[in-house]
Design a protein around this nucleic acid. Structure first.
Lengths: 136, 136
DNA sequence: GAAATAATGATAACGGTTATCATTTAAGGA
DNA sequence: TCCTTAAATGATAACCGTTATCATTATTTC
């Protein structure tokens, strides 16, 4: 059975305290300041467990790039800036969310499949990078 | 400058001859039958080059799972079955495609970002797996 | 407390991909 | 056609994020 551990609590708190989408290693660095003895494997293990139990989100990235984690489990889209690589949240209102899901389910119906979830990452240029370009 | 190579031609042809979404290794296996001397690194190198020049698509998968490649560059969505892991294409008509893109661009506007591309993977149960379940 | 057994920490192993480097080969003249 | 040059190749080592292993520690239950 699942058993309480100080480490898991620290990991969940550390993730919720961040407003970005940290990697396992970033969280490990944060937590090391409080509990220097923690091992990186424990961070990975607990993030996996928290993800499987639905307490956090995981943004799977491509090979060789670390996965990102998200303490905010309200459904939302992600936007990744192609210039600075930052990942931002896009929260939709319920109406927008339902409408999008309905449309995607229809698309799945085209091939007679049942959609359960979708993974959407928008890519382009974030506000900061756009503003930076203008100032050059 | 870019220079012709028999290997690159074989790789592109091998990919186009498949209707699924093979991994680099699957293509390597196919091509080895014709050119046994080819090296796996050459396959990876050329797939990367073909992707960068827009001649093929790449479906980036999660860590520890091989990337998939697609010789069909007409814009389309992907559906991955959570049971059998197969990836299928979903082709939208132009109207559906434009409508979806417009909607996604609006979502990016919420955070003042400019969307260039989107990566959408629908997940759920494919037709085959659904039919299989019914027959049990 | 004591026993049972999850969870941990250190580190080796893993898997897909990329880098390295000597060798081969295509391209463009002489 | 031969020569030069530099891109492409093939073999393999290295890389990097992640997972497995295993002895040790710590939480739960009695």
């Amino acid at each position: 059975m699942e058993r309480y551990s100080k480490q898991r609590e620290l990991i969940l708190t550390a993730l919720r305290n961040r407003k970005d989408h940290p990697t396992a290693e970033m969280l490990y660095n944060d937590i090391s300041k409080i509990m220097p003895s923690i091992g990186i494997a424990t961070v990975y293990r607990n993030l996996a467990a928290l993800y499987e139990s639905g307490q956090i989100l995981k943004i799977e990235t491509k090979q060789g790039e670390s996965d990102r984690f998200d303490g905010n489990i309200k459904p939302h889209l992600h936007f990744q800036c192609l210039e600075c690589n930052k990942i931002e949240d896009i929260f939709l209102n319920e109406e927008q969310n339902n409408q999008l899901n309905e449309q995607l389910k229809e698309f799945a119906n085209i091939i007679d499949a049942e959609m359960a979830t979708s993974k959407i990452v928008l890519k382009g240029r974030c506000k900061d990078c756009r503003d930076k370009k203008i100032n050059l």
